[in-house]
Design a binder for these strands. Structure first.
Length: 261
DNA sequence: ATGGTAGCAGGGCTA
């Protein structure tokens, strides 16, 4: 049995202390980070190693993007892919000794205007998702877990107002359609919603709100998926809302799941 | 309708 968590940390160097706190207080076996905003060699690995997370697989670049997998369980680097040819550090994979593959994704946010003619970044986001679809269609993933900041809240109850967000990037029908196509191509099961099928569920609250907690205008952008052969081993999903209230927080909170494997 | 905050880098870009 192991517990896996995903967290967009918005700078792993600035928030090294918050990562250490989560590792100490919740002790996931595996923690997948996004938006590390650091070259791999500048990730504060020693601090994480001292807490028992001695197996680290990461991809990074200066200032933007960046993904890392910190693990107490042995794992090997299983490569990365430059989806949509952006040259960004937005994906890395690792394999556990039991044969389970972990994919850690940071899907592009996509800018503000939901139109690829007016906004190149929106087109790149759709292209990234289309290449995910094609890759999963070709690979037929098995014994795999996919986590990360997918930057899309697909369901009506994944946002504070479905109606008010229909034209807001992260919840537009075309994005939801593209994400669904990628999910279907890999037969991925949404583990968080398998465990918590009903009700509002958010993993992100904007920094721009005066009072994020009172306004509660959240979105579920961070996801844990698994292939059908291991999906029934998953349970105990949690979204750690209180982490948004920690000092100098990320705008995202960790999402957890446990697998009996 | 607009602007609101944050990180990196040390000006604007990205979110």
């Amino acid at each position: 049995m192991f517990t896996i968590a995903t967290w967009n940390i918005n700078s792993v160097r600035l928030r090294e202390g918050l990562v250490a706190r989560l590792l100490r207080e919740e002790s996931p076996d595996i923690l997948c980070l996004q938006e590390c905003k650091s070259p791999v060699e500048k990730i504060p690995m020693q601090a994480f190693r001292e807490l028992g997370y001695t197996h680290i697989v990461a991809r990074g670049q200066k200032g933007y993007n960046g993904v890392a997998i910190l693990s107490r369980l042995p794992l090997e680097d299983a490569g990365d892919r430059d989806y949509a040819g952006l040259g960004h550090a937005r994906h890395v994979a690792a394999r556990l000794e039991n044969g389970v593959t972990i994919h850690n994704f940071y899907v592009p946010a996509g800018g503000d205007i939901p139109d690829r003619e007016q906004n190149i970044k929106f087109g790149q986001k759709l292209d990234f998702l289309t290449e995910m679809r094609d890759a999963f269609h070709a690979d037929n993933p098995e014994k795999s877990i996919l986590v990360g900041d997918l930057n899309i809240a697909p369901r009506e109850d994944d946002v504070w107002s479905h109606k008010q967000l229909l034209k807001i990037v992260s919840h537009t029908p075309i994005e939801v359609e593209h994400l669904g196509a990628a999910q279907d191509a890999g037969k991925w099961v949404d583990i968080t919603r398998k465990d918590i099928p009903e009700g509002l569920l958010y993993s992100w609250w904007s920094y721009r709100a005066r009072d994020w907690d009172a306004a509660d205008k959240g979105r579920r952008l961070d996801h844990v998926w698994a292939t059908p052969d291991i999906a029934n081993a998953a349970h105990g999903s949690r979204i750690l809302r209180p982490v948004r209230g920690w000092e100098k927080p990320s705008d995202h909170v960790p999402v957890f799941a446990t697998f009996d494997l």
